[in-house]
């Protein structure tokens, strides 16, 4: 089943078409990697899906609904989650508060008015155990190490429990062990969640990706398994020049 269907999507910044007539279909439960040289429009594509940037033309269908012109918080409520390139946790809040914020099944004002502390059990505990932050729940997120901050952000994504998760270079700045552990978590997420990852680390891509889409100059250049992509002459040309 196609969960995300991008049709002829274009966005124009001044004279530059950052994404140009993009067509992309992602199946339910798939883990898709977006590759491409700098400026290929990978991050912009994620921005368009989550609503950070509005499309100039074209359509985005998610779960059968047209979300092209929805506000970003409405898309999030449809089940689209986003992890940004720069770790963005709430530094002034504690670890558990960050998770509480991310657990936004009922993000409405009235529900929030009647919700007090979320206890450390169920999904919250499970998520924190998984990223080994259970001992730090009362630490301010700003006091965590860089690696822990990354884990907290992934934990927030897990707590948010989005149907579609968009990630921009999730392993940037991670050690080899951390990258491996991240790959492990990703592999356990596929199936239940649909994931789109922008990533440069080919080692990581080989570990997680089923299908890879290579973008160039705002459109799809090639699509296929990692082996097919690595053998593709056009992809080589784009990456190596000529």
């Amino acid at each position: 089943m196609t969960v995300l269907d991008i049709q002829n999507l274009t966005v124009q910044f001044g004279g530059l078409k950052a994404v140009n007539g993009l067509n992309l279909q992602v199946q339910q439960g798939e883990l898709r990697c977006l590759l491409g040289p700098n400026g290929a429009g990978k991050s912009t594509t994620l921005d368009l899906i989550c609503g950070k940037t509005r499309a100039t033309s074209g359509r985005i269908l998610f779960d059968g609904a047209d979300i092209t012109n929805l506000a970003e918080y409405r898309r999030a409520r449809h089940g689209i989650g986003r992890k940004f390139q720069v770790p963005s946790v709430f530094k002034e809040l504690t670890v558990i508060e960050n998770i509480e914020i991310a657990r936004s099944r009922r993000p409405g004002l009235l529900a929030a008015l009647t919700t007090f502390r979320t206890p450390l059990r169920g999904r919250v505990k499970e998520v924190l155990d998984r990223v080994a932050l259970t001992d730090h729940i009362d630490s301010k997120a700003g006091n965590l190490s860089h690696g822990q901050t990354q884990w907290l952000e992934i934990a927030m994504l897990l707590a948010q429990d989005s149907k579609l998760i968009l990630m921009d270079e999730p392993t940037a700045g991670m050690t080899i062990q951390e990258t491996l552990k991240t790959a492990e978590i990703f592999n356990s997420l596929r199936g239940e969640h649909t994931i789109i990852v922008v990533e440069h680390d080919m080692q990581f891509v080989r570990q997680v990706a089923q299908r890879v889409t290579v973008m160039n100059q705002g459109s799809v250049l090639a699509e296929g398994t990692i082996a097919e992509i690595e053998a593709d002459a056009r992809v080589k040309a784009v990456y190596l020049g000529h």
């Binding site: 989550c50 918080y73 999030a76 809040l93």
Partner: peptide, 17 residues
């Protein structure tokens, strides 16, 4: 308190800031 810190991030979590 999260709004004070990063309102944009909250929107991607589904909150109508």
């Amino acid at each position: 308190r999260a709004i004070r810190e990063d309102a944009a991030r909250l929107r991607y979590l589904g909150y109508d800031v």
